[in-house]
Simulated scan of single mutants.
Amino acid sequence: MQDRLPHEKGFHVSWDQLHRDARALAWRLQGLGPDDGYWRAVVAITRGGMAPAMIVSRELDIRVVDTVSVKSYDRQTQAEPELIKAPNPEIMGNQGEGVLIVDDLVDTGRTLELVRALYPKAHFATVYAKPKGKPMVETYITEVSQDTWIFFPWDMALQYVEPYRGRD
């Protein structure tokens, strides 16, 4: 049996699956906000957190939405996280209290570690979580193994793929 290359241990997420999982995240977050169960704002970690944050904000009727931009990957290589853009300070208030910070995935947790240091009272939620990063989030939907690469719909194109066996 032939071993697979590391990138071939993949978890492919379609737009439909992402939508279902982000709605499940919203359902799990419903009623957890500190203001009678409501959240003051949603902050998406760009770029991957933008689609899930939009869905969560719609489902929970949160009208105040902002972004925080952290660069932690150079293509598929993880690098030192760097803050590029912070959310509006008025939105973040008292260290992020009452704010829901949403990302698509927590991998090693280094991105969220940087954001959590800035806003320690915010609630961190991701759609997908890997074991190393899981302690950095309060809420997530699906756990995948650390050595799995998640292929998100915004990174994919439809194309023919050779079968594992044979070429009929």
Score class of each variant (00 low, 15 high):
Gln2Glu: 11
Asp3Phe: 12
Leu5Gln: 03
Gly10Gln: 09
Gly10Met: 05
Gly10Lys: 14
His12Asn: 08
Trp15Gln: 01
Trp15Met: 02
Gln17Ala: 09
Leu18Asn: 05
Leu18Ser: 02
Ala24Phe: 05
Ala24Val: 06
Leu25Cys: 09
Trp27His: 12
Arg28Pro: 06
Leu29Arg: 02
Leu32His: 12
Gly33Gln: 07
Pro34Cys: 11
Gly37His: 10
Gly37Trp: 10
Trp39Tyr: 15
Ala41Ser: 03
Ala41Gly: 13
Ala44Gly: 05
Ala44Cys: 07
Gly48Leu: 01
Met50Leu: 15
Met50Lys: 01
Ala51Glu: 02
Pro52Tyr: 00
Ala53Glu: 00
Ile55Lys: 03
Ser57Glu: 01
Leu60Ala: 09
Asp61Gln: 09
Asp66Thr: 04
Thr67Tyr: 13
Val70Ala: 05
Lys71Asn: 10
Asp74Leu: 14
Asp74Asn: 14
Arg75Met: 09
Arg75His: 14
Gln76Leu: 08
Ala79Leu: 15
Glu80Val: 13
Pro81Tyr: 11
Leu83Cys: 14
Leu83Lys: 11
Leu83His: 12
Ile84Gln: 15
Ile84Pro: 05
Ile84Phe: 11
Ile84Gly: 08
Lys85Cys: 09
Lys85Ser: 13
Pro89Cys: 04
Ile91Arg: 14
Gly93Thr: 07
Gln95Gly: 08
Gln95Tyr: 15
Gly96Phe: 02
Glu97Gly: 11
Gly98Arg: 13
Val99Tyr: 09
Leu100Cys: 00
Val102Asn: 01
Val106Phe: 02
Val106Trp: 06
Gly109Trp: 03
Arg110Trp: 02
Glu113Lys: 08
Leu114Val: 12
Val115Phe: 01
Arg116Pro: 10
Ala117Ile: 01
Pro120Met: 02
His123Trp: 06
Phe124Arg: 07
Thr126Tyr: 02
Val127Pro: 05
Met136Trp: 05
Val137Asn: 00
Thr139Glu: 05
Thr139Val: 10
Thr139Pro: 03
Thr142Trp: 03
Thr148Glu: 09
Ile150Cys: 00
Pro153Asn: 00
Trp154Asp: 14
Ala157His: 14
Tyr160Cys: 05
Gly166Cys: 08
Asp168Glu: 14
